[in-house]
Design a protein around this nucleic acid. Structure first.
Length: 272
DNA sequence: AAGAGACCCTGGATGC
DNA sequence: TGCATCCAGGGTCTCT
């Protein structure tokens, strides 16, 4: 569930708590959390290491280690991070814990077991398939339009395709399409260059605002200190089915697109 | 190649 | 109250 603004907010809060702290033990509470390498290799390689830099790529968190390897984590739907004293009790759904020499422990908690950890020599192994960062310089109307121009899938589905643009999930896809006044079922091929430019701008604006508000808390998302974001108070369409459009008053519609619930204003976002 | 659907899980909400 | 069903913010895989 965490999308770009939530992942960035979590990483910003987490980084100062773990940077340059030496890991002296690794506890894998549920082995499926480690995607690669095999769990015993994962433990052996990480013991004695420290994180020397961190960054976000799409919805992935990348932790550069002092030996040059990269620890990559993805929160998927319900993943959370917290850093607490070592004597603090484990919580239900804790999947992976890193104990530091400074007496603090970094826990990864994930109710639905979708989240994953990867330890790789080259981060590209995991993130090279991702499209451009939506807030980066190469996410331009011309580039985006060129990549969707021959696609017949609904634009809503294309926004969720991380190979086209990285970091957008269901909430911000719906919110961006509303701001751009584009119906979610319009296909990529139907969108003009001007439409693409409007959408690129809407994506940037909604993500920037959500970053400023520290993300959207619906049920599970929490920052590492347990506090919530506030963008849920700024949602225009997401999970507002039947409620009046903030612009025209028409009731917000909910449909399913590509298996995902999709919310839009039928008057502000007409199907042409 | 691109698109649709199943699947991985747990638990909260809803319906009977 | 108890039980069944549906639903969830993501990503990957298979099939067509």
């Amino acid at each position: 569930m965490p999308e770009l603004p939530e992942v960035q907010t979590i990483l910003d809060a987490l980084t100062p708590l773990i940077l340059h702290q030496t890991i002296h033990d690794i506890h894998i509470h549920w082995p499926g959390v480690v995607d690669r390498p095999p769990t015993e290799v994962f433990r052996a390689e990480l013991r004695g290491r420290s994180v020397v830099k961190s960054k976000r790529r799409g919805k992935y968190m990348l932790f550069g280690l002092d030996d040059g390897q990269t620890l990559i984590m993805h929160l998927r739907m319900t993943g959370k991070m917290r850093v607490v004293p070592a004597q603090s009790p484990l919580q239900r759904h804790d999947r992976l814990s890193f104990a530091f020499e400074n007496g603090q422990t970094w826990h990864f908690n994930d109710q639905r077991k979708f989240g994953r950890a990867y330890l790789v020599a080259d981060a590209a192994e995991i993130v090279s398939k991702l499209g451009p960062e939506p807030l980066g310089a190469d996410f331009t109307p011309a580039n985006f339009h060129a990549r969707i121009a021959r696609r017949r899938a609904p634009i809503k589905s294309l926004l969720l395709d991380q190979r086209l643009v990285a970091g957008i999930g269901n909430i911000y896809a719906d919110e961006a399409l509303y701001r751009a006044r584009i119906h979610p079922l319009r296909t990529g091929a139907e969108l003009s260059l001007a439409d693409a430019a409007t959408l690129v701008d809407a994506i940037r604006q909604v993500l920037q605002q959500a970053l400023a508000e520290m993300g959207t808390t619906l049920r599970d998302y929490r920052r590492p200190d347990g506090s919530a974001g506030s963008f849920q108070n700024s949602l225009s369409v997401f999970r507002r089915t039947g409620q009046p459009c903030l612009s025209c008053g028409a009731p917000i519609s909910r449909i399913v697109v590509g298996g995902r619930s999709t919310h839009f204003c039928p008057r502000e976002q007409p199907y042409p």
